[in-house]
Design a protein around this nucleic acid. Structure first.
Lengths: 244, 244
DNA sequence: TCGACCCTATAACCTAGGTTATCTCTTGCC
DNA sequence: GGCAAGAGATAACCTAGGTTATAGGGTCGA
């Protein structure tokens, strides 16, 4: 249950935004709970549940989504190892989205009532929290553009390139070809497309040597190629910078 | 330039989330600058500009948007009186979106470097800031659903109903029929539609007695009607609540 | 080891909404 | 007070992507 700061999910995540003094590290550490295993397809929480903690995803993938009245769903975000899940809604009493595991995963909980503690005792942590939510919003804004004004090819390519950038940030080890545990219907639900059309588009991409599709997972073969299909510009992923 | 707390834009806005003690009020007040006039169609800032303050919109309307390579644009959000503009990107060095006035407006600037001051001296202000950004995100998430999974009729109705809720929150005085300074092309760009199709859809809405269109502005006549066209559920607009 | 279920591929067909083009009516501007 | 530019209505036409259906391979639990 107790771990030192080197392998703490949350310390690692925060340090990718700013250096933390010893005090802040200890504070974070003392508030984080140890990792728990969550198998593929389990629901972390559902819309309407009590909202009493957020999590860091130390291993595996997850996504947040909303189910609509007519049976369709909208996937709102995909989370990769190192991401923080649920910070977005931490000041709501109830969850406004649901979250499900896309693969077997490990999560560290961070109870929400500890936040007051953080706000009042560490200025650094407080601004890092803001930076994290800012980056989150930047990603959402870009997703809006993606949904509103791009073609199916562009949507898919853009989404995949974004994910590969996010993966490289925390998982520097990954080599040139990436393997993502995403089914075509998750992608369809994320991008406002039908699963059939995702399949059609992947057919094209395969012929162009951009990627390979497997069973509920896909490999990116040519990220530069995808990037130019998407007209991708990474400016919105640049780390927010504190002014101090 | 100096105003008392009763007519300060930002104090009013913050107090709609939580009661502020005298100290916090004074702190906010001392950091806010007096209102400035910005005429219709002026650009508040553009993507790439230095990001050194955010604003409260005390009078008038504005919207944020992004211009795309192919000449189209995506409107990301519409701001109504009382809203905070630019908080979203305050931890980026540069603006990631542009903002333009949709009507003659008045804004109060709040320089960004004052935030450290706030974080370190008022716990209440700090959590209110988080609540504001949380609500902001909730609205963005709902916009994602709107763009991804709803028909043109639903998109339009949903967007308009959301706006009317947001207006009622701060402008309680407004009677049953609302007048919004929105052109059809702004709506099209916000919802990923073509202006032509917005016009077609408004034609239907007019025949159904839901609204009237004027010149770059429209009147909502039957908000309940629009609400049922949209399948609107206001849960996501509920004020975030602090746990204390 | 069987069967149910999920994931994917692919074909045939269809429609919501995009595009282009005119025309009119305002509005603002010199 | 006249003109250019923006805002809207409407019609004709078109296409990106949705829908439905079928079928094959994988995976997993009993």
């Amino acid at each position: 249950m107790s771990n030192d700061s080197d392998d703490s999910c949350i310390v690692k995540h925060f340090e990718s935004y700013a250096e933390l003094d010893e005090n802040s590290q200890q504070l974070l550490l003392s508030l984080e709970e140890g990792p728990e295993k969550w198998p593929k397809n389990t629901i972390l929480w559902q819309q309407g549940d009590q909202s009493d903690s957020f999590y860091t995803l130390s291993k595996g993938w997850a996504c947040s989504f909303r189910d609509l009245e007519d049976g369709t769903r909208q996937v709102l975000d995909v989370y990769v190892p190192g991401d923080i899940v649920g910070l977005r809604e931490f000041s709501f009493r109830k969850r406004i989205t649901s979250v499900v595991m896309l693969s077997d995963a490990e999560l560290c909980a961070f109870p929400r009532h500890h936040l007051d503690h953080i706000f009042s005792s560490s200025l650094v942590l407080c601004s890092v929290m803001f930076m994290i939510t800012s980056r989150d919003q930047a990603i959402l804004l870009e997703r809006l553009v993606n949904l509103g004004r791009r073609s199916a090819r562009e949507k898919l390519a853009h989404f995949l390139v974004e994910l590969s950038y996010r993966l490289l940030r925390t998982n520097a080890f990954v080599e040139n070809h990436l393997s993502l545990p995403l089914s075509q219907s998750v992608l369809a639900d994320a991008l406002g497309l039908s699963a059939v059309h995702v399949s059609r588009t992947f057919q094209e991409f395969r012929q162009e040597g951009l990627l390979n599709t497997g069973n509920a997972h896909l490999e990116l073969l040519d990220i530069n190629g995808l990037q130019s299909v998407a007209g991708f510009d990474e400016f919105y992923l640049e780390s927010p910078i504190s002014e101090s």
